[in-house]
Amino acid sequence: MQRVNMIMAESPGLITICLLGYLLSAECTVFLDHENANKILNRPKRYNSGKLEEFVQGNLERECMEEKCSFEEAREVFENTERTTEFWKQYVDGDQCESNPCLNGGSCKDDINSYECWCPFGFEGKNCELDVTCNIKNGRCEQFCKNSADNKVVCSCTEGYRLAENQKSCEPAVPFPCGRVSVSQTSKLTRAETVFPDVDYVNSTEAETILDNITQSTQSFNDFTRVVGGEDAKPGQFPWQVVLNGKVDAFCGGSIVNEKWIVTAAHCVETGVKITVVAGEHNIEETEHTEQKRNVIRIIPHHNYNAAINKYNHDIALLELDEPLVLNSYVTPICIADKEYTNIFLKFGSGYVSGWGRVFHKGRSALVLQYLRVPLVDRATCLRSTKFTIYNNMFCAGFHEGGRDSCQGDSGGPHVTEVEGTSFLTGIISWGEECAMKGKYGIYTKVSRYVNWIKEKTKLT
């Protein structure tokens, strides 16, 4: 034993070699072989497995989906700052455009905790909710729209109204504003409101030439003092309507412009014939205590009207009353817009006519005020429907199939267009061939041609 100890002390290297040989010859039971080890760690190889990531292109799944990435790591994937920024906006807080917040056709661009709407022409605001041009839906104005110097929408209202708090709607500024039905039992019968379409306001006024200088022999019209197929109006439903009495009662109609003036057809009036105007009328054979009678003290036909040349060209006249009318729910003026808007309103496509005229061709006159909704007829169809001249200051309205029309005794009465609950004068009943005849239409004086003249002559002093 002493000898062994001496050998170990003198030859430590020998001992180490012996131990190493023993270990190498022993069977290893701690580690699995290569094949079995792979069965336990069965993990798919990654895209760049075996390579240094710093030297390969980034992978979106590896960089940002398996674990949260930084902007720089995302930049490695896209290799483009702009594309990385677009991805980053949604990656950080989701897609803010998912709810489609942009209105009126706006395009949404996502941002971090926010979004941006790219608005089409005519709109602005956070969600493109603000109209900035009158060309689109009248700028959301209830009545009139004008573009300011910086191309912003400025709404306005006709006389007797003021802008509401929203700067879009119009509200009454006087007790009985024009064009409004205020009798409670008839307010439910107000005709369907007309909503502004998209309009090209630059070209809204037709490029028409008034044929002022045409000389033409007097034409022989049949029954051209021209509501057939209409309905009984309720008291106060058309408070701007008046009836004219002269040699015979209810020979023509008219509309209240203001307390002192009536507008009617020029062919209705004769110099030297006494005319009485009755406002607030409903049943011409009954006294309903809503009527107001006034005498006409002055007749002003349009300066281009000449019955000797043509009885229905420039067929418009103004009547001055001896005493002002007292405005109330049964006696209310009709609204008159400017030339541009009167023309736009007419193009809405349908209007209402009213009167006490004959209820059928050569038949009896109506006792109760009649009204009828009539569609506008395109000019080409209008011209083809008659052998008589249709001037540019006239328009056609009615039904091709016949059966409904204005008729004798309705002449001078109103053709009105309702705009968001307020009625505007767009025409004056003038003439036609018979009444409600198939293929024939009622012919009306186009008020847009005469609004400046009306307003100039009827100013209240």
Results as ranks from 00 to 15, higher is better:
Glu82Gly: 07
Ala380Thr: 12
Val278Tyr: 05
Leu376Lys: 05
Trp88Met: 08
Thr29Glu: 14
Arg379Lys: 15
Asn80Ile: 04
Glu73Asp: 01
Glu76Val: 00
Ser217Asn: 10
Ala266Lys: 03
Gly421Met: 05
Leu319Ile: 07
Lys168Ser: 05
Asn127Thr: 11
Trp240Leu: 00
His267Gly: 05
Phe123Asn: 05
Pro120Asn: 12
Pro177Thr: 03
Gly236Met: 07
His34Leu: 08
Lys234Phe: 12
Tyr91Gln: 06
Val30Pro: 13
Glu82Gln: 10
Asn393His: 09
Tyr161His: 05
Ile275Met: 08
Ile429Leu: 14
Glu193Ala: 15
Asn203Trp: 07
Leu52Trp: 06
Gly421Ile: 03
Leu460Val: 05
Ser156His: 10
Ala9Val: 10
Ser187Arg: 11
Ser406Ala: 08
Glu456Gly: 07
Lys89Cys: 06
Pro12Met: 14
Ile214Thr: 15
Ser11Val: 14
Lys457Gln: 10
Phe121Asp: 08
Leu376Asp: 02
Glu72Met: 06
Asn127Gln: 14
Leu244Tyr: 04
Lys68Asn: 10
Leu319Gly: 03
Lys293Asn: 07
Asp95Gln: 12
Ile309Leu: 10
Ser354His: 05
Ile7Cys: 09
Tyr115Thr: 05
Ile297Ala: 08
Gln185Ala: 07
Ile300Val: 13
Trp118Leu: 13
Asp410Ile: 15
Ile454Leu: 08
Asp223Arg: 10
Ile454Pro: 00
Val199Phe: 13
Glu171Val: 08
Glu323Val: 13
Cys170Ser: 00
Asn48Ala: 03
Ile112Phe: 14
Asn295Gly: 07
Tyr441Leu: 10
Leu376Ser: 04
Asn42Leu: 09
Glu124Ser: 11
Glu420Phe: 11
Lys137Ser: 15
Arg364Tyr: 08
Leu369Val: 07
Asn100Pro: 04
Asp93His: 12
Asp131Gln: 14
Asn245Arg: 13
Gly439Pro: 06
Ile7Phe: 09
Thr422Val: 09
Asp405Asn: 14
Arg3Phe: 14
Trp453Glu: 00
Asn452Gln: 11
Val269Met: 07
Ile284Met: 09
Gly412Tyr: 08
Thr417Ile: 05
Cys119Val: 01
His400Pro: 15
Thr133Cys: 05
Cys119His: 02
His314Gly: 04
Glu320Val: 00
Val278Lys: 06
Thr389Ala: 15
Thr287Leu: 14
Asp378Ser: 10
Lys126His: 12
Tyr444Met: 05
Glu10Cys: 12
Phe238His: 04
Thr264Ala: 06
Gly421Arg: 08
Ile284Val: 10
Gln370Cys: 05
Gly253Cys: 11
Asp410Lys: 15
Cys335His: 01
Pro101Asp: 04
Tyr305Asn: 03
Lys45Gly: 01
Ile17Asp: 02
Asn306Thr: 04
Cys145Pro: 00
Ala308Met: 10
Ile275His: 05
Asn151Gly: 11
Lys188Ile: 13
Glu98Ser: 13
Phe71Ala: 03
Glu98Met: 09
Phe424Thr: 00
His400Trp: 09
Trp118Glu: 15
Asp212Trp: 10
Gly413Phe: 05
Asn304Gln: 14
Ser49Ile: 05
Glu10Asp: 12
Val195Thr: 07
Ser329Glu: 15
Asp338Trp: 04
Ile334Gln: 00
Asn59Met: 04
Glu433His: 13
Asn295Leu: 07
Gln143Trp: 01
Gly94Gln: 14
Tyr312Phe: 12
Ile299Met: 11
Asp110Ser: 13
Asn295Ile: 06
Ala164Trp: 04
Arg3Ala: 14
Asn80Ala: 05
Val228His: 09
Glu73Thr: 01
His282Trp: 13
Thr158Leu: 09
Ile262Trp: 01
Glu433Met: 07
Glu270Val: 11
Pro197Ser: 12
Thr81Ala: 10
Ala164Lys: 11
Ser430Val: 14
Leu372Ile: 14
Gly432Phe: 05
Asp378Ile: 03
Thr85Cys: 06
Ser187Ile: 12
Phe251Ala: 09
Glu61Val: 04
Lys339Tyr: 08
Thr84Ser: 06
Ile316Trp: 01
Ala9Pro: 13
Trp88Pro: 02
Lys347Glu: 08
Cys382Pro: 02
Glu35Met: 12
Arg3Thr: 09
Lys152Tyr: 11
Ser70Thr: 13
Asp232His: 12
Ala207His: 11
Pro172Met: 06
Gly409Trp: 08
Tyr201Gln: 15
Tyr330Gly: 04
Lys126Cys: 06
Asp131Tyr: 14
Phe238Thr: 04
Pro177Glu: 01
Cys128Trp: 03
Val377Pro: 02
Pro175Val: 07
Thr426Asn: 01
Val419Cys: 05
Leu325Ser: 01
Asn38Pro: 05
Val243Glu: 03
Lys339Leu: 06
Phe78Gly: 03
Tyr22Ala: 13
Val243Leu: 09
Asp232Ala: 13
Glu456Tyr: 08
Thr186Gln: 15
Glu86Val: 10
Asp110Tyr: 10
Gly280Val: 02
Gln143Thr: 03
Ser255Tyr: 01
Thr190Asn: 08
Gly105Val: 03
Gly421Ser: 06
Glu66Gln: 08
Pro120Tyr: 05
Glu323Asp: 09
Gln90His: 14
Tyr391Gly: 12
Ala37Thr: 10
Ser49Tyr: 05
Glu286Gln: 13
Asn213Cys: 04
Glu61Ser: 03
Leu189Ala: 11
Glu285Gly: 06
Glu285Trp: 10
Cys155Leu: 00
Ser220Phe: 09
Gly160Asn: 08
Val296Gln: 01
Pro301Leu: 12
Pro101His: 06
Ile7Pro: 14
Pro120Glu: 07
Glu35His: 07
Arg379Pro: 15
Gly125Cys: 02
Ala265Gly: 05
Gly442Ile: 10
Lys438Ala: 08
Thr190Ser: 13
Asn245Met: 07
Lys457Asp: 02
Glu159Pro: 07
Asn304Glu: 13
Ala207Ile: 11
Thr461Arg: 08
Val377Asp: 01
Ser184Trp: 08
Ala192His: 10
Gly122Tyr: 05
Ser148Phe: 07
Asp93Asn: 14
Ile284Asn: 08
Asn304Leu: 15
Lys387Gln: 13
Lys293His: 10
Asn38Val: 12
Gly125His: 03
Asp198Phe: 09
Lys339Phe: 07
Phe360Met: 15
Ser365Asp: 15
Leu369Cys: 04
Lys89Phe: 06
Ser182His: 09
Cys396Leu: 02
Ala307His: 08
Leu372Asp: 09
Tyr391Asp: 15
Trp240Ser: 00
Gln370Phe: 02
Ile7Gly: 14
Ser255Ala: 05
Val228Thr: 13
Lys459Asp: 15
Arg298His: 06
Ser49Arg: 05
Val273Ala: 13
Gln237His: 08
Ile297Phe: 05
Ser114Pro: 05
Glu54Asn: 00
Asp150Thr: 12
Pro375Gly: 15
Val77Cys: 06
Leu211Asn: 10
Val296Gly: 02
Asn452Met: 06
Ser25Arg: 08
Asp110Leu: 10
Pro414Gln: 15
Asn258Met: 02
Lys455Ile: 06
Lys387Phe: 05
Leu383Ile: 11
Thr225Ile: 13
Asp95Arg: 12
Thr287Ile: 13
Trp88Gln: 03
Asn343Glu: 15
Gln216Phe: 08
Lys152Val: 12
Arg226His: 13
Ala266Val: 02
Gly412Cys: 06
Pro120Lys: 07
Glu124Ala: 12
Thr332Leu: 11
Gln237Pro: 08
Ile284Leu: 15
Glu10Tyr: 05
